[in-house]
Measured scan of single mutants.
Amino acid sequence: MIIKINGKYYKIKKIEKNPNGKYTITTENGKKYEFKNVKIFSEEELK
């Protein structure tokens, strides 16, 4: 799965839903981001 952050695309390693309704997304390079609204892309959609 792929996520778009600030115009760049990252591969997703893990998605966790937090009790506060936000999502914590861990990218393949180990960085964590927290979002309220998340749009996930499949690799097929990006081709």
Rank of each mutant, 00 (worst) to 15 (best):
I40T: 05
K17P: 06
K31M: 13
I3L: 08
E45L: 03
F35Y: 10
N20V: 03
L46M: 10
E43Q: 05
I15Y: 05
I5C: 05
T26D: 01
K8S: 07
I40W: 15
E34D: 07
T24W: 09
N18I: 06
E34R: 06
K13A: 14
K11H: 09
Y23T: 05
Y23L: 09
K47M: 14
S42C: 09
Y10E: 11
E45Q: 05
I3R: 00
K36S: 12
I5D: 01
I2E: 04
K47H: 14
K36V: 13
E43T: 02
I2F: 15
T27F: 15
N20C: 06
L46A: 05
Y23H: 03
F41A: 07
K22V: 14
G21P: 00
E16C: 08
G21C: 04
K47W: 03
V38S: 03
Y33S: 01
K32N: 07
N6T: 04
E44K: 02
K14T: 14
M1R: 06
E16H: 07
E34Y: 14
K47F: 05
K4Q: 14
I5K: 02
K13S: 13
K36E: 14
V38A: 05
N18R: 09
E44R: 01
G21N: 04
K36D: 15
E16N: 05
I15L: 11
K13V: 12
K13I: 14
Y23R: 00
G7L: 03
M1P: 08
E28N: 11
K36N: 11
K39C: 15
I2R: 07
E16M: 07
K22R: 12
I5Q: 01
V38Q: 05
E28L: 13
L46N: 09
T26H: 09
M1S: 09
I12C: 04
K32R: 13
I2P: 01
E28T: 10
K4T: 06
K22M: 14
Y23S: 02
Y23F: 12
K11D: 03
T26E: 11
K47P: 11
Y9G: 03
K17S: 07
K13C: 05
I2W: 15
V38M: 05
I40P: 07
G21W: 01
M1W: 14
G21M: 02
L46I: 13
K14I: 12
Y10L: 12
T26N: 02
I15Q: 01
F41R: 03
E45A: 06
E44P: 02
T26K: 02
Y10I: 12
G30W: 01
E44W: 01
K14P: 00
F41Q: 06
M1E: 05
I25Y: 03
S42T: 12
G30D: 09
I40V: 07
N6H: 12
I15G: 00
N29W: 08
G30N: 07
I25V: 14
I2S: 12
